[in-house]
């Protein structure tokens, strides 16, 4: 028997109660992360990427609730309560780096305190040992003079430095899985590249599994082994990176790839996916993408099942682009628009 995946999510449903009623932000997501693997999660804004990751970390709070689904860590169930797993795994085995480094640190506690509290909690280190380890961690993420900097407050650091500190903090408990939710979006382009390099380097050095949530297909190509594409609270396609880029099966994935700037595209033409992401409280019946889909047909009004395409690929579509995509088929997609 193969060993269980590091993290496994099965049929996760997360809902939010708003003034206008209850809506599901995540509508039955299943995914898994293998040891040592880097999984990319892509999808438009509002597709439920962050909510899914927050559910794993046990951060879903009223007005949100986990309605259904199982989460397993090394085969053991994660979820204890309606609001997510207890802190035993989250924070110790799984750590998360958030999008906005500027607001992610407590403005009134020194970065030293914010790192050592993790070491005290999960590593049982006492004051001096914790401080020593904290400055080691700061050095690891490329902060010079770490001993002195432990006494600084967050506002004394730049955005890029704060994201480095966030990464140091996430690594403090020596987690097996690092969830990075758009870790670079809030940063300058040059700083983005540095943070990406740092993440890649640390991942290789510490043998981390990583879930990378991003809008940046380039980043996915660079860092990830496998990709899950999310649309309107569902995973519409999963595939190994090479195969996904070579031959997307879901029309939405194809659209995403076409909307990505390419160096080899002499025309420099970008095609955005037509229309805008649907309102999660008012989704079309059946396949949520069908109102924007060039391949939509009548049967798309029924919920698509996820079909296994073999070699770890899956797609939830009635009319997938048959891989590998030949030129003729690509032309058909264009013609359909």
């Amino acid at each position: 028997m193969t060993p269980p995946p590091l993290l496994e999510i099965e049929d996760l449903v997360v809902s939010f109660t708003t003034r206008r009623g209850v809506f599901e932000a995540v509508r039955g997501v299943s995914l898994h992360v293998e040891p040592g693997e880097t999984l990319g999660i892509v999808g438009e804004s509002g597709s439920g990427k962050s909510v899914t990751m927050q559910a794993v970390m046990g951060l879903i709070e009223a007005p949100g609730a986990i309605e259904r689904g199982a989460m397993r860590w090394n085969g053991e169930p994660l979820s204890g309560t309606r609001h997510g797993p207890r802190a035993a795994v989250a924070g110790r085995e799984i750590a998360m780096v958030f999008q906005d480094a500027m607001t992610s640190l407590n403005p009134l506690l020194t970065v030293g305190v914010q790192i050592t509290e993790v070491l005290r909690r999960h590593k049982g280190l006492k004051a001096a040992a914790a401080s020593a380890r904290a400055s080691e961690l700061l050095r690891l993420v490329g902060i010079t003079n770490p001993e002195g900097r432990l006494h600084y407050l967050p506002h004394q650091f730049s955005g890029g430095m704060r994201q480095r500190i966030m990464i140091a903090m996430a690594l403090a408990a020596e987690p097996a899985l690092l969830i990075a939710d758009e870790p670079t979006t809030a940063l300058d382009v040059t700083i983005q590249a540095q943070i990406v390099d740092l993440l890649a380097e640390l991942r290789d050095r510490l043998h981390l599994s990583v879930v990378l949530v991003t809008h940046d297909m380039g980043l996915v190509a660079e860092l990830c082994d496998r990709v899950a594409v999310m649309y309107a609270g569902r995973i519409v396609e999963t595939a190994p990176v090479q195969e996904l880029f070579a031959a997307p099966a879901h029309p939405y994935t194809a659209g995403l790839l076409r909307s990505m700037p390419r160096l080899d595209d002499s025309a420099g033409r970008l095609e955005a996916i037509e229309g805008s992401p649907p309102d999660p409280s008012d989704l079309p019946e059946g396949c949520a993408f069908r109102t924007r889909c060039p391949r939509a047909q009548e049967d798309c009004i029924h919920d698509p099942l996820t079909t296994d395409l073999g070699s770890g690929r899956g797609v939830a579509c009635w009319h997938p682009l048959a891989p590998p995509v030949a030129h003729g088929q690509e032309a058909r997609v264009h013609a359909g628009e």
């Binding site: 989250a90 506690l109 966030m166």
Partner: peptide, 20 residues
């Protein structure tokens, strides 16, 4: 956001509410 981050670190509720 920093409270969310503090909770993601697996700290006790007392620490998150009382200190942060």
């Amino acid at each position: 956001q920093y409270v969310k981050v503090a909770r993601s670190k697996g700290l006790s509720g007392l620490r998150v509410v009382g200190t942060h």
